[in-house]
Computed example of a mutant assay.
Amino acid sequence: MKNKYIIIPVFAFLLSMLLYSCEKNAVQIIDVPVSGAQLKFFNFGVNAPIVNFYANDTKVSAALSATGSESSTTGVAYGAVYPSVNSYAVIAPGTYNFKGQRPSTVSTDANLAISTLNTSVQEGKNYSLYLSGIYNASAKTIESFIVEDVLPPVDTSGGYVRFVHAISNANPFNLVLKNTTTGAETVVATNIAYKSASSFVKVPFGIYELYCRYPNSSTNVISRNGTSAVSVIKANTYTFSIRGDMTVTSTTATNRPFIDNTPNR
């Protein structure tokens, strides 16, 4: 399956012979492999406002704009991922201060960085950066962490899945997949703690219910089943992440514990 990459402006000069120029807030999507480090950005901080993601002072996530003006409403909202499709943003390798930053056009807290994370990214590697935990409305801060996405080779005989834990007030979990046709259960991740990720595991293609259980327990603590069951397609790779607040018991609240399904490719 062909990967798509989103190139941020600081990297665009390397492609000047291939792409038309664009204004400062735009991004480019191309279908050919490129050099650099590849990143996905998750706003999974409970109650966090809309943000744009920056690497130092260069915007990595942005809506296409015909005017050059930043949108106050188009950013990465809680529960959203950028890029949202099975692609990555591409930046030059190096050490960055990654920021989740409020848009410049909002009436309150314009350009405020609610989260910062200083870390290095390497050539040819893939990463996922998460805003996580529960937003501190007084300090106007949220936690963040980054994990490497060690993508397996493309395999047409099955799909690959992994588990990322982004709920700050939850204990470590196992992730269990239940095939909706056979009823067979497979434990794909064991004892994964907050701000941690499991390795990618191969599973047969099919439709699965997802269950988070505490180690040595058969009780489903977080579930994704019924009409929310997920399809694992052969040759594809998926990240199942948990977000939310474990104290919320509503089954419909936005900030309830939830299992997200994001394709990596």
Results as ranks from 00 to 15, higher is better:
K2V: 08
I50P: 01
P103I: 00
K40T: 07
I8V: 13
A66K: 07
S250A: 15
V221E: 11
Q101I: 14
K125P: 00
S223E: 06
T249E: 14
A26D: 12
P152D: 14
Q28E: 14
N97E: 10
T219C: 04
A66E: 13
Y127M: 00
S87N: 09
V221S: 14
V76M: 00
I114D: 03
E23L: 07
N136I: 06
N25Y: 08
F163C: 13
L177H: 02
I50A: 03
D109T: 00
L131Y: 08
S218E: 11
K178L: 06
G45L: 04
E70N: 02
V147T: 14
V176T: 08
K2D: 13
N56M: 03
V221F: 10
D155F: 05
G244L: 06
S196W: 12
S35W: 03
N111D: 10
N97Q: 12
N136D: 08
Y135Q: 14
A235P: 06
Y82G: 02
S218K: 07
I222W: 10
S198M: 05
T58I: 10
K40D: 03
S231P: 13
N264R: 12
P257M: 15
S104H: 00
I142F: 03
K99E: 09
N179G: 01
N220C: 06
H165T: 15
R265G: 15
S69T: 15
K59N: 00
K99H: 14
S107A: 02
Y78N: 11
Q101C: 01
Y211A: 07
Y160V: 15
N261D: 11
E148C: 02
S16E: 13
Y238L: 15
S217R: 11
N179W: 01
S120G: 09
L177K: 02
T181E: 10
T105G: 02
K234V: 15
N174I: 05
I29L: 11
D57Q: 12
N220G: 12
S84P: 01
